[in-house]
Design a protein around this nucleic acid. Structure first.
Length: 241
DNA sequence: AACCAGGACGTGA
DNA sequence: TCACGTCATGGT
């Protein structure tokens, strides 16, 4: 089986094993806007669900806060920002670094992340979501990558889930799972992995969104860095455990 | 009590 | 380029 076929089949297997994940989660703005979820429980990050500006901001903040951090801790930080009146671009611009750091403490790396958030909202002054939406994907990506603290994965999450651009998000789980399937080595680069997925799949935002979420779900269960589950768990995928 | 979590960046080789 | 150290809280 070719690598591209493996990529396509893995998607079908994961989708059938876990069902649609409906990313990106928005703990703060979900439920306070009508468009927060559709009848299937989909979040506004999903391609055809309109995201408000504040929901786009929440997706971007969440992408930063969850860097090398459990989503649970990142989500707590988002709620804390909201509770402390720091959940808007204007408030974040006016707030001092220490204020933001204190509010996002539970997400870890709070000194770095507060600076990143500051840089991000300054960036958004010059390049608001409204403008970025109309840029090409690669142009918007180049711009986002200029923000200190925003690397390839964070930029791609913002592009895919907040701006609905067709770009595949690669993370540590993606790398481990593909290495486990014997498709690539553990030390394959970000661009290499991204290109493999994008050349194997139809250029479909919904598929990209769903696939990344499924890889995270599967990775959480079976691809922790410390192998805890392999061998004594139910095998969910025929391609990789 | 180590070890991990939906990374990014600076450094030296 | 690239391997390695650093940043930090909360859960197992």
């Amino acid at each position: 089986m070719t690598h591209r076929k493996i990529i396509r089949q893995l998607y079908e297997e994961l989708l059938s094993a876990y069902g649609p994940q409906g990313w990106w989660p928005v703990p703060v703005t979900a439920g306070r806007q009508r468009s927060a979820c559709d009848e299937n429980g989909y979040h506004p990050g999903v391609f055809n669900i309109p995201a408000t500006r504040s929901q786009q901001l929440e997706i971007a903040l969440g992408a930063v806060l969850t860097q090398n951090t459990s989503w649970k801790n990142a989500a707590a930080a988002l709620l804390s920002l909201s509770k402390n009146g720091l959940f808007s671009q204007r408030c974040l611009l006016e707030a001092k670094n220490e204020e933001i750091a204190l509010a996002i403490r539970t997400a870890g790396y709070y000194n770095q992340k507060s600076k990143t958030i500051k840089s991000l909202v300054f960036f958004l002054q010059d390049h608001p979501f409204k403008t970025l939406e109309h840029e090409t994907c690669s142009k918007a990506r180049r711009l986002l990558l200029q923000v200190r603290g925003i690397g390839p994965e964070t930029a791609d999450c913002i592009l895919l889930y907040a701006l609905k651009k067709p770009i595949f998000v690669v993370d540590a789980y993606t790398r481990r799972i593909l290495a486990g399937a014997g498709v690539l080595s553990e030390k394959a680069g970000y661009n290499e992995l991204q290109a493999l997925f994008e050349s194997s799949l139809e250029k479909n935002i919904r598929v990209y969104q769903e696939y990344h979420a499924l890889l995270v779900q599967h990775g959480k269960l079976y691809y922790s860095r410390k192998p805890h589950g392999k061998g004594d768990v139910i095998i969910r995928s025929r391609l990789v455990i």
